[in-house]
Amino acid sequence: MKKIINHPDAFVDETLEGILLAHPDKLKAVDGNLRAMARTCATKGKAGVITGGGSGHLPTFLGYVGKGMLDACAVGNVFASPSAQVMLKCIKAADQGAGVICLYGNYGGDRMNFEMASELADMEDIKVEHIVVSDDIASAPPENADGRRGVAGLFFAYKIAGAAADLMMSLSEVSEVTRRALDNIRSIGVAVSPCILPQVGFPTFSIGADELEVGMGIHGEPGIETRRMMKADEIAEMMLEKLTAEIHLDKGDRASILVNGLGATPREELYIVYRKAAKILIEKGVEIIDPEIGEFATSMEMAGVSLSLLKLNDEELLRLYKHPASTPFYVKEASR
């Protein structure tokens, strides 16, 4: 195994140091703690929106801290939840008197730590709301949708919540519109090769040479089925079919679509997948709004692709999605 690192134990902190050195205008370490990153500019009275999660998924989660998106992010070790103490630092940094929304993916460790952090914040009289993202349709059937994991759809959730807060909507308004957005967000992914944790040094799971895992999670959680390797068009068609079984898209509907590489998949391949997905939607008469193709939620050097949908028939969601944002890993220009 080859990794361009110095020492496995320094992987997370050295990544964070690099990001901080590259973006001192956008990010700062709260109280000098690299694991609690906050944006440099604060607006009095703005509802705070923070997130948190394990490392190994850049640009998720930290990469979306910045104007128009997140106020702070608690960073954990690779694939491990940050501590409640670090989350509390982020909550305090993001609180501008209007309370804070903790918006994060549905993973046991993250959920428990965020709940503990909000109990600690409550002792300091900071109002905290929780919104748990569970967009991965492959991780549980619809009747158990609460048990689904959060994956690349987190990006859409950050975008909507961050824009709403930036427009000075109240904590409850931001929370309401974000939950409405989540009803319109779904994701699914396929993986073709595994990832390697720096501190382990070899893949902890395997994917057959001519196989593809449908629905594998971003930590290598087993998917819903193992299939023989498929063509890009077949993959795009299959993923879109599964997504639109839950988010119906018909003629005249509007939606954004996000094609996300898991870490080792070239942009070329992502665009080949996008090509097919876009053609299917255009043929249906669906208007595609500002599609995103690139890396948003990765899994180290895992190869594979995920597809996320955000249905945007709702005028307010559309306006918030179009709202400008500027973060280290994502910039949205104001629309003309």
Binding site: N77, A80, P82, Q85, N113, M116
Partner: peptide, 11 residues
């Protein structure tokens, strides 16, 4: 909580 970054540490 801060030094035992596993689910069991959190629990």
């Amino acid at each position: 909580n801060e030094t035992s970054p596993s689910t069991l540490g959190t629990i």
